[in-house]
Write a protein that binds this DNA or RNA. Sequence first.
RNA 1: GCGGGUAUAGCUUAGUGGUAAAGCUCCAGCCUUCCAAGCUGGCUAGGAGGGUUCGAUUCCCUCUACCCGCUCCA
Length: 555
Amino acid sequence: MSTESQVNRMEKIVSLCKRRGFIFQSSEIYGGLNGFWDYGPLGAELKRNVKELWWKSMTRLRDDIVGLEATIIMHPSVWKASGHVDTFSDPMSTCRSCKKLVRSDQVWDMLETTPWAEAVRSCAPGGVADREALLKWAKGKGQRLVPNFALVKDPETMLGRLSERSAEAPGSQQHLLQILCTADPSGPLSMPCPHCAGELTEPRPFNLMFKTYVGPAATEDDIAYLRPETAQAIFVQFKNVVDSSRVKVPFGICQIGKAFRNEVTPRNFTFRSREFEQMELEFFIKPDEVVQAQTGGIAKLPEGELPGQPEANWGWEMWHKYWVEERLRWYESIGLKRSSLEEYWQKPDELAHYARATVDILYKFPFGTQELEGIAARSNFDLTQHQTHSGKSMEYFDQEANLRYVPHVIEPSAGVDRLILALLAEAFEEEEVVDEKGQKEVRTVLRFHPRVAPIKAGIFPLLKNKPELVSKALEVRDLLRPLMNVFYDDGGAIGRRYRRQDEAGTPFCITIDFDTIGENGPEKKDTVTLRHRDSMKQERVRIADLPAYLLSQTS
RNA sequence: GCGGGUAUAGCUUAGUGGUAAAGCUCCAGCCUUCCAAGCUGGCUAGGAGGGUUCGAUUCCCUCUACCCGCUCCA
C-alpha cells in the first residue's frame, strides 16, 4: 500500500525525471499516449549503461553465454506455439455493482470457494432450489454478505423468476446462480460477480498482444504480432545458435530488446508500459535424467547454503538457485541494496503451467514492492512446443552422454525500464544541508552507483572570465572525453554547478582553479579539485592521475 | 475497459467571466578564488475539441493524459 509520503516521493521523482531530462511522456505535445514513455538525454545514458553492464556480465565475462538480436515481428506461428495467442486474450467482465474486473473464464472457479456462493448452493442441493431456505438466507445472512445480489434485494420476485426461467435452467447450480443474480427478467442471463454477487457485464476480449499486418494488403491472412516477450526468439533460433557457435549444454543465449503488451492498465509511471524493454537469458541445461546417468547423482544444496560455481552434477534446481544468486549479485553491483530487494518463491499453485519453479526478484518501490525480474525453471516446455508446431527437431546431441535430448531451460527475465525506475527510486534523496549563512536547505541528489551514472564527471573552470582557467578546463575535458561521458559547465557560481550535477547523479566533479594553472607554486600545478557527490568532500588530484582513478571508480 | 481524483511557464503554486501573478529553474551579460551568492536583461503557461456568452483559463459537454483502485505482469 502506498502511503501519502510515498506517493509524494514518487511525484518528486517523476518531476525530477522531467526537469533534468531522464524521462518524458511520449508524444507529449499531442497530449501524451497512455503507456508510452521516452528517455531524455540523461535517461538514455542511464539506460544504455545498464544494458551494457548486463550484456557485459552475461556475455563478455563468461564463456558459456552468447548473444542474439532478433526481430520484433516474427512468424505468427511462434505465438501460437508459445501459447500467447491463447493466453494473451483473456475474456474479461466488469461487475455492474462493485465495478471490479474479473476474468470471465475464472468466474466459476472462483465461485467454488466463495462463501456466499457456497451458502446459496447449500440451499439448492443437486441444483434443486429449496425456496424456503433461500428466502431465509436472503433475508438474513445474505443481507450482510452480498447486498448487491438480486436475490437479496428482492427475494420474492427473484424466487418467482426461478420457475419462469426454469426452461433455461435445467437444474444446475450454475444456472441457478445466474437466474438469481439477473435483475432484468427479459434479458439474457448474467454471471454473478464472485466478489459481491452483482451482475457481470458480457465478457469482452482483452487482447494483450499488439496486432499489425505484414505487407500492404492488410488482410486477415497478413496478421502478425509485435512480440510480447523476447524469450521466444531465443527458442526459435536455438538450433541455429547451436549449429553455428560451438556451444555445449549447459550454455545460454541472451537478448536485450523491445517487447509490447497492450496492458489493461499501464500504471506507476514507467513501471508498466505498453512498449518496454527486456533483458532475457535462456540458459539451457541437461535434463536431470541425463545428469543422473552421467554423474551418478544430482547435487543437493544443503539448507541455507549458496550454490557456488557450476558443477557437472547440477540438476535444474541447483542451476535455478545459481541464477537467482547471480542475478541478485548483479543488482547489487549496479547499486540496488540487498535490503531494497526481495526474493519471492512462487507457490506451487501460482506457477504458470510451464514452470517448475519461479522466483521473483522484487524491488521496494515507493508505490509498493514489485517485480523487477522473474527467474523461471521452464523445463523443456518451450523447445518442445516449437518442435511440435514447426515439425523441426529441437534435440541437442550430447557427445559426452552420447544421446539426444531437448534441453531444459532456466530463464532469468528482467524488465529494463522498471529497473531504471528502481535505480532512480533507490538513488533519489533529499538531504538537508546547512549553507554558509547557517540556513538549512534541501539538496536533491541522485546517488547512482558510478557505474550507471549518466555523467561520470562534471568539469568546471572555477571562473568563467579567466581564459587560463577555461582553456585548462577544456584540456581536461578533452583528456577524459574519449574515456567516459563527462560534462563541461562554466555557467553560474561553482556551488550551483555542483548542485546541478547532484541532481543528475554525477558522482565526481572536477574544478580547475588557480592552483591548477600554477599561480600558487609549482608543486600544485596541474592538480585539480575532485569533489565527491555523496560526501561533498574535496580532494586534490593530479590531472595525470584522473583517467585511471575515474575509470577504476566507474567501471 | 469501469469507478474516483487531477490538468495554469521547465518546476512548484496564485488568481480571474474582461491585459494571467509569483518564486525557483533556464538563457545572455556583468561580477565572482569551491557548494543553488549578487546585479541587469530575457524566453516561456491555463491538455485538446466543441458549446453558452459581446467576451471563457474561469460555466457546460466530449475527448486525451496523469495519479489512486479493480486486473495484469518483465
